[in-house]
Design a binder for these strands. Structure first.
Lengths: 353, 353
DNA sequence: CCCGATCGTGGAATCGATCCCATTGAGTCC
DNA sequence: GGACTCAATGGGATCGATTCCACGATCGGG
């Protein structure tokens, strides 16, 4: 026991003072070498660097954050991680931000506005340098305050009315149109829709794209072929059961979300419906296993990776030219970036018989 | 422009000093009221609280972290978020930790040891209060240093040799045994295995469970019915193709991972193999859509939720009685917690014909 | 050779909270 | 009434880095 006298000391990190002392310079000079790269002689620079190396110095980001008011932390507020788009976005965001020296504070809201509020408060307490929000839409007032307080905010995939800050949005409407146009082009006329709740941007936009594409072909959607509900597996299952039991069942189906599509596929297997011979299928949202399904599933890819990357890019742009102390307005009020969707045609769509 | 003179001021947060001044007390007293709940008169307490309320005071966690050496940040180092177990764990961990006042710094390694090293360094720089690691297994030396430096570490799902800190492990071997016993009990003898890489704990343990259960029934695994490879969709697909093309195809299949199972199911649909009539199927790892498949899939649930919860519980236990400045050893050297797996029998398994 | 500019460096204030220690005043006991 | 206890509070050091300011040395131009 007594043979390890410095055990209490070992667990204390090396500070800048110690490096400075070891290098025989002042704290200020050591700091200049290690962070600010301003005017230091080559000789002292070497001395400090080797001392830091030797002692295994690592800067304390908490201390430096207090002084500089930059935490190098970004808050990510997101609905869940189960949905494929969301976990892809989270991964991409984290990786890109890390490359730029930022770490991610993850907050999963589960669509609960109260939790979202608490997270926003907490993230501010931690002095995050920026925020990416896939919001519930219930706290726009609070988001506006945050943004007004000079903390860059990027709204991702959801742009509630009265939102402030930049928005990076998926091309949901356009994507749904692409899907329906593809089906129409193959000769389908009875096209069914399984989609998300009207309260959510993607639910609304995908439906309006669906309707618009049909309208452009002079078709009005049959109510019996439209199912709008939650983004859940059972909803997909039940909807397929109902739609396929209609007097005139559809020859094609647009399934507007990854989770619902699980249900859709399970129900089709259960009913023994052959895809694409009896029913063509297009799904909105790519998932890693769609290309390997039998048949490989035709999808509308909402470009989750791009959404993540553009969100980071826009956020960093804001952080870098954010007004510091003067109350000057940022370069523009709030940019809307829309990411293109693309149709990936695979084997689940074919001309109707 | 000149009409908003305080815009520069508005964006500065309220500090404890200001609260103290507004309440007519000293900074120390204000601090006592708002954090330490030690002896303060009811009157001053009210004064400070109302001043804080009125000014919208929120403590600066960076400053308080510097002084107290507690950041209220926990680092989570994890392989990816695409795998169902991993994103469930991440969600659960984040939620539980938040309930206890901690936020999560998310780091996705993508199984890259170099990235893992960098993340560990960065997390230490941010002075995280603890770490949960689903590790690559290549940085045990570094993890040991971290742990020795007094930062609680919980290893999750992976326990490489020479690891230090606590381990929360899935009951992989036991789970695989349950699956095989279930199949044996129904009368199956030709049972195929599609599993993960031997380098990963789960790949190794699930295979040994598979072998052990067969051995207990006096059966030796047929090499033609065993596929060990990466946890990917294509590997599942290819394996099924190969296994079902064998001279004596299996009557039952154990599919050892969520991603591979996608491939497995796609391939079975493609081959027109009816489940469970022609082939019984058990999958390791639960996924939200398995109960809704046709037929509903029998699974070994590795209890990702429990893994997350137990990891948090153990981590907080360490944080709360961690040796502070004295070099005293923690209560025990490193605990191994094993989470039970359970078999959820659904419709994808039946007696062979 | 002198003066101003520039460079390299150290001293000390600062960020915002926590907490040790000293001080004050009220209450208690003999 | 004096000594003592104890609760309530304020002053000020402190955490570890950054950064403003000042000082001395070097250098070049006139």
């Amino acid at each position: 026991m007594g043979s390890i006298p410095r055990s209490g000391v070992d667990r204390v990190a090396v500070t800048l003072d110690e490096v400075a002392e070891a290098a025989g310079v002042s704290k200020s000079t050591a700091s200049r070498v290690l962070s600010g790269s301003s005017r230091v002689s080559a000789q002292t620079r070497r001395a400090v660097q080797s001392a830091a190396e030797r002692l295994g110095y690592r800067p304390n980001r908490v201390a430096s954050g207090l002084r500089t008011r930059r935490s190098n932390l970004i808050g990510l507020v997101i609905t869940n991680l189960v949905n494929a788009s969301f976990h892809v976005i989270t991964e991409v965001l984290q990786q890109r931000l890390d490359e730029c020296g930022y770490q991610v504070l993850l907050c999963v809201t589960d669509s609960d506005p109260a939790r979202e509020r608490r997270y926003l408060d907490t993230l501010l307490d931690h002095r995050v340098d920026g925020l990416v929000i896939v919001g519930t839409g219930e706290n726009t007032d609070m988001v506006r305050q945050v943004s007004a307080a000079g903390i860059p905010v990027v709204n991702l995939m959801r742009a509630p009315v009265g939102v402030s800050g930049d928005c990076v949005m998926a091309g949901d409407r356009e994507g749904a149109e692409l899907a329906v146009q593809h089906l129409l082009g193959m000769g389908h006329r009875r096209i069914a829709f399984i989609g998300g709740p009207p309260e959510v941007d993607s639910g609304r936009d995908r439906y309006s794209g669906f309707v618009a594409a049909l309208a452009a072909a002079g078709i009005e959607p049959y109510p019996a072929l439209v199912a709008r509900g939650p983004y859940t597996v059972p909803f997909g299952t039940e909807s397929v059961m109902r739609l396929m039991a209609a007097a005139h069942p559809p020859t094609a189906l647009y399934s507007a979300n990854h989770e619902a599509t699980f249900g859709t596929l399970g129900a089709l297997v259960q009913l023994g419906v052959r895809v694409p011979e009896q029913l063509s299928l297009v799904c909105h949202e790519e998932a890693p296993w769609f290309p390997y399904w039998h048949p490989p599933i035709t999808v509308v890819d909402n470009s989750a990776r791009d959404l993540g990357e553009l969100a980071v890019e826009q956020l960093l742009r804001r952080i870098d030219n954010r007004p510091d102390d003067a109350g000057a307005a940022p370069d523009d009020a709030g940019r809307l970036i829309r990411v293109g969707s693309r149709l990936v045609v695979r084997g689940s769509t074919a001309a109707p018989r």
